[in-house]
Amino acid sequence: MTVSLNTPDPQLRVLTNPDITLSDIIKSLPKSCFRQNLFKAWSGVIINVLMVALGYMAIVNSPWFLLPVAWIFTGTALTGFFVIGHDAGHRSFAKHRWVNDLVGHVLMVPLIYPFHSWRISHNFHHAHTNKLGVDNAWRPFDVEEYVNLTPINRFVYKQIRGYFWWVGSIIHWANLHLNWNSFDEKDRGDVKCSITVVVVFAAISFPTLILTTGIWGFAKFWLVPWMVYHFWMSTFTIVHHTAVDIPFKPTKEWNAAEAQLVGSVHCDYPRWVEFLCHDINVHIPHHVSTAIPSYNLRIAHKSLKENWGEYVYERQFNWVLMKEIVEQCHLYDPERAYLSFEDHSSH
């Protein structure tokens, strides 16, 4: 489906049959979608480690004019680390919780991402996808909330909703995952453990890297690939649930089936990106059920298209898509899904 930029008020995407439940959608999927495969899971880890190693070899050996290519490849491969940790966080990587926790910590620690902090806040996103004022992933502010922001926060919101969307996940990471006091008491032990892991890793690896390679080495080998990783994190996550015709709903109007099936976006990226990032872009089945491992997402997506095709939203990653999002999808509007900053200023 393609949305025309010339359409001022696109038809909002909704569930036309309110009797459809999320359980109905899940039951329509073949059982093979939920089957864990240890060979596929661990071969994915091995391939990903090799791709990251290849990326760092390229960084070490590339002349200055090829460094951007090496950085982009390495940062994208590091995003694959996060996606495998993402499976582990949803307990779809392995049957044993301790294996999931170990894999999640090991693969996320180079990204300075506290595994349990992310796991808990991300599961909250899945429980409240596209719920206005509740969802913690790229939810739009309404006009009143936006106007009442401090000037600094209003400026930041405006930038990450515009052409600086690609730093949005850094703001999300810093705001949500590094303060254990923002989590429920029952979760703070796990959160403190994960934060300690990344702090110890950073305290050892960063000084070591700077002492052996200098500030430029720190930027070259960690900071720039990390920024590329966050470019993909920001891009994937904003595209997953943002479009001019996908509304966020107030709690009283929110419907789980509508939010997860109709409010999620499948986006096709260059195949090398999808390969390195383990098909995280095949996002609709993941929101229908987090129990589906990443290597089964394409099978599940095919099934969803066969059974629920009228609701499956597919886009292509390109400048037209990103321009639509960063120029129009700014503030919540109950009639149009979004109000742009420009439209808000003109009123």
Rank of each mutant, 00 (worst) to 15 (best):
S4C: 04
D9M: 13
P10R: 08
T16P: 04
N17M: 00
I20N: 07
D24Y: 09
I25V: 15
K27L: 13
S28W: 12
K31Y: 11
A41T: 11
L50H: 00
V52C: 04
A53P: 05
A53Y: 10
A53W: 10
Y56C: 05
S62V: 07
P63A: 03
F65N: 13
W71N: 09
T74A: 14
G75A: 10
L78N: 08
T79G: 15
G80W: 00
G85Y: 03
H86W: 11
A94F: 11
A94W: 01
H96F: 15
G104L: 03
L111A: 07
S117C: 05
S117E: 06
F124L: 11
A127P: 03
H128A: 09
N130L: 09
N130Y: 00
K131V: 12
L132T: 00
G133V: 00
G133L: 05
N136M: 12
N136K: 09
A137N: 08
A137F: 01
R139V: 13
R139Y: 08
F141P: 03
F141C: 05
T150A: 07
P151I: 03
I152T: 14
R154E: 09
K158M: 14
R161W: 01
G162E: 10
G162H: 13
F164L: 15
W173I: 12
A174Q: 08
N179D: 15
W180I: 08
S182L: 12
D187R: 03
V191M: 07
S194R: 09
V197M: 06
V198M: 10
V199I: 11
F201W: 09
L211Y: 12
T213I: 00
T213Y: 08
W216I: 10
G217H: 10
G217F: 02
K220V: 01
F221I: 03
M227P: 06
M233R: 09
T242K: 00
I246V: 14
K249D: 11
P250T: 10
P250A: 08
T251C: 04
G263E: 11
H266P: 02
C267E: 11
F275S: 00
D279M: 11
I280W: 04
I280K: 01
I280L: 13
I280D: 03
N281K: 00
H283S: 06
S289H: 01
S289Q: 01
T290P: 03
S294R: 05
R298V: 07
H301D: 07
H301Q: 15
L304D: 05
L304N: 07
G309P: 10
E310D: 14
V312K: 06
Q316F: 08
V320Q: 14
V320M: 08
I325D: 10
L331C: 11
L331H: 04
E342T: 14
S345R: 13
S346W: 02
